[in-house]
Design a protein around this nucleic acid. Structure first.
Lengths: 102, 102
DNA sequence: TGCATATTTAGCGAATTAGCTAAATACTTC
DNA sequence: GAAGTATTTAGCTAATTCGCTAAATATGCA
């Protein structure tokens, strides 16, 4: 499975999409992420492993805890690559429009 | 299930992602799409129904056949909405960079 | 070392998914 | 309306997925 495939599989689950959103403010420990959801710690851990396998997050140990960090480049890169492959003209157009507005 | 959720579920399958790419050149009949894949017509039909439920394609009958058309706005809108929710600063930046290059 | 906390791994069950074949439906043409 | 082509619906099976609990692993601290 290519990494784009892993990314799209990972994003298929609403809990995992929400997890990435929780991480947009910076690193969080697995337990801190878990506290935002009504599912068990093992389930949280499994979701994080799937996000990590897709390289949508990275982890580092901090003493007792494991901190997860969002990898925006993977998300942006994968989604934009697919968008460009499927509708290149509209994507380019949309970027011009967005740039003009800013 | 919101429509963004249906879009991400639909994109989780590699056959369906490929189907959208096949449709980027314009309308195709279900059978013409099916001819590009090594799976049965009923399976093709099921994939198309999932893409249609996510509003990633629309269909219209043409005599005997049913023509499918890509809906780029749904794809671009859903993916960009999520990108903006998860990493707004990088997305904005990337658009400026893309606009500067063009 | 021993105990507490944080997280993952193992293993199970229910639900979903993607494939198939067979049958039904829709339209065209004779 | 009968036959032919295109597509979908129904129903089945195998594989995957997502949740859980119990147990294992890793680290921190007395």
């Amino acid at each position: 499975m290519g990494n784009a495939a892993r990314v799209f599989r990972a994003l298929a689950d609403p809990t995992r999409r929400q997890m990435l959103e929780e991480l947009k403010g910076g690193e969080l420990a697995a337990g801190e992420i878990g506290a935002r959801f009504a599912i068990s710690a093992p389930s949280i851990s499994r979701h994080l492993a799937i996000l990590k396998a897709a390289e949508l997050v990275t982890e580092r140990r901090d003493g007792n805890r494991i901190l997860y960090r969002l990898e925006p480049a993977t998300l942006i890169g994968s989604l934009n690559a697919y968008l460009s492959a499927v509708c290149p003209t509209q994507v380019r157009q949309r970027r011009r429009i967005a740039a003009r507005r800013s």
